[in-house]
Design a protein around this nucleic acid. Structure first.
Lengths: 347, 347
DNA sequence: ATATATTACGCACACGTGTGCGATAATGAC
DNA sequence: GTCATTATCGCACACGTGTGCGTAATATAT
């Protein structure tokens, strides 16, 4: 812990620059002393001081990851992908829970700036203008996950799933099953991913000749409790839907639980589609039909993009572009063909 | 990004030590220049270099958190508790996924040592002797979560749930419902928490005058797929159990899913108890009876303990002791009284 | 044998910050 | 007016590492 290259230098009878070069396998040092010094370092239990090294090289080999909460399984899987590839490339991950509080988020970014991270990945769902400004000041490349950033370019890029296409897939699936009255339960307010999924939903309806009904848009929050409340709101409608597309799986989980308590059978009485395909989607009763996001893959992609941005700062930094991945509809048992007696009611 | 206290000093016409003291609100600096320098720092967008500061103060205000995988919801909730309290005390969290690979785990610890973290929290389930040695060399206090450490003292302490008591609670609940043949599905091999839960299970059986049957111990791995395989193994027994206590909720989730596919009704044909009380336990069908661990609280506790250890290194460091919290039995719908026809079969 | 190229290493400085100690100026006491 | 006492601030060094450049020793070429 306390042994430095100067200590090794003293023990080996050389100067500390020689030790520095020997340990970094510089060709300027003879093979004999190189091996002698390396063995000595090993014996003395030397651990390079990353602080001192980062101070002079201006590289810390650490990246900041800002999330709303790591307790969300969707977020956790993305972070898993990020951390694994970061580690594989010798980078370290500094985790920051923002808790969706802007003040806390800004404090976190300021901390990352102080720690001189080489880059930042943000999966927090909404990026305010003020927040983006702070993010700029950090002076390091930034990759956003599932965040539309209008002013892409410079050093901020994004990896996102095609939310609109995903919403279109989910809604199209329900339409194909014969459903006409289809609800959408929204996610957290002002999130771009929510708006895009909703746009895909609307697009699919119009494409099928179904007039979008604003009363069928139910507010949620991306969490189970939001889904539970959404079901109640949905049931109190004058003309309730026969199917519902939820912003994400967590919402669907809450909605399904509430439905069971109300004696509503899924999918017989109500078809439900989620989004994300978190691990638990397949273990639900009924197993949840959902649009799968390649979460771990997206984390890997984001980290790779960040690595390219870091290493390409002086080089050719223009070949990197935003990346859009596609979700995949996974049909399980929470959706089924509309029963005729319901169709009759529609007439 | 590039502005240092020297730049501020030049702009203010003072020396850089004066700036350093002014920004740290030292009483050696007059109120007038202090305010002038602070405003100047604000205007110039100064961000203190944590690397340089840490190099001289030997404090980095960052802690390492080593986990098997952040994708496990149980782990994620603990980390949530750790990160929140760390942030509240001005500390930063460096996350390391070990993936349960020893080689990777050691690499992670070596990295943390290089980064000169002020402390480490480990929730990885098994701490080998070799690994603990590396952990010692880091020269910083260590807190283990749900890991028995025999040689407690020095700078390594632990926070853990009373696993034996938890196992006793779960098994006692099943016994009280009339069950006699009760299986236990194990967790990851060689984990102390698994052995303790199993000991509690055995203790409850003996206490009730039931002879423990080694054939009822089914190997699992703490993940759903382990639970699925466990159910198959369980059904192939000559005299299958009427209830099963699972190492954790993830195991129970897999076991329940497999049971549904085999047409086995829970809790009618088989009562199931889990451990942890992850968020999804209450959303399962049937909602899972389980032993709740105060996960976020345990994370907070561990972080507080680590903070005490960090600040008390020179002070009175002897008043800190290992902490054991108690799990709470939460009865839901996956367990019920043993049906008589099964009892008859036992005769 | 001399000149040149090469090898192996040390010297000095830099990165940005904190801190003990001395120096100067201002203030007060007599 | 002289001396002691503060109040402010600068000087110098330290933390541990990387790197350009100079230098001595050795090898190669003529």
């Amino acid at each position: 812990m306390r042994v430095s290259i100067k200590d090794i230098a003293k023990a080996a009878g050389v100067s500390h620059p020689t030790v520095s070069r020997a340990l970094s396998d510089s060709p300027l040092i003879s093979a004999a002393t190189k091996e002698r010094i390396q063995r000595l370092a090993q014996e003395m239990g030397y651990s390079p001081n990353a602080l001192a090294r980062g101070l002079v090289t201006r590289q810390t080999y650490s990246v900041g990851v800002v999330v709303t909460t790591i307790a969300d399984p969707f977020v956790a899987e993305i972070v898993q992908g990020i951390e694994t590839t970061a580690h594989d490339h010798g980078y370290t991950v500094i985790l920051c829970n923002s808790g969706a509080e802007p003040q806390r988020e800004i404090a976190a970014v300021e901390m990352l700036r102080s720690k001189r991270v080489d880059g930042v990945i943000v999966t927090s769902s909404r990026v305010g203008a003020l927040y983006l400004e702070h993010l700029e000041r950090i002076g390091a490349p930034v990759v956003l996950i599932n965040n539309h950033n209008e002013q892409s370019g410079r050093y901020t890029f994004s990896v996102e799933v095609d939310n609109q296409h995903g919403g279109w897939l989910a809604t199209g699936h329900l339409i194909q099953l014969g459903h006409q009255r289809i609800s959408y339960v929204t996610g957290p307010a002002n999130s771009s991913s929510d708006l895009d999924r909703q746009a895909g939903y609307r697009h699919a309806l119009i494409e099928a000749g179904i007039e979008p009904d604003a009363t069928l848009i139910i507010p949620g929050n991306g969490r189970p409790d939001g889904g539970e409340r959404a079901l109640e709101a949905l049931l109190s409608l004058a003309d309730p839907p026969t199917a519902v597309f939820c912003y994400n799986d967590m919402t669907a989980i809450g909605l399904i639980a509430a439905a069971r308590r109300r004696g509503i059978c899924i999918p017989r009485d109500l078809s439900v589609v989620g989004f994300d395909d978190i691990v638990f989607a397949s273990y639900l009763e009924p197993p949840l039909t959902t649009v799968a996001q390649p979460k771990v893959e997206m984390g890997r992609l984001a980290m790779h993009m960040l690595l390219s941005l870091i290493t390409a700062r002086e080089d050719n930094g223009e070949e990197i572009s935003n990346r859009v991945v596609h979700g995949e509809l996974i049909v399980r048992a929470s959706t089924r063909k509309l029963c005729r007696r319901f169709e009759r009611r529609d007439k």
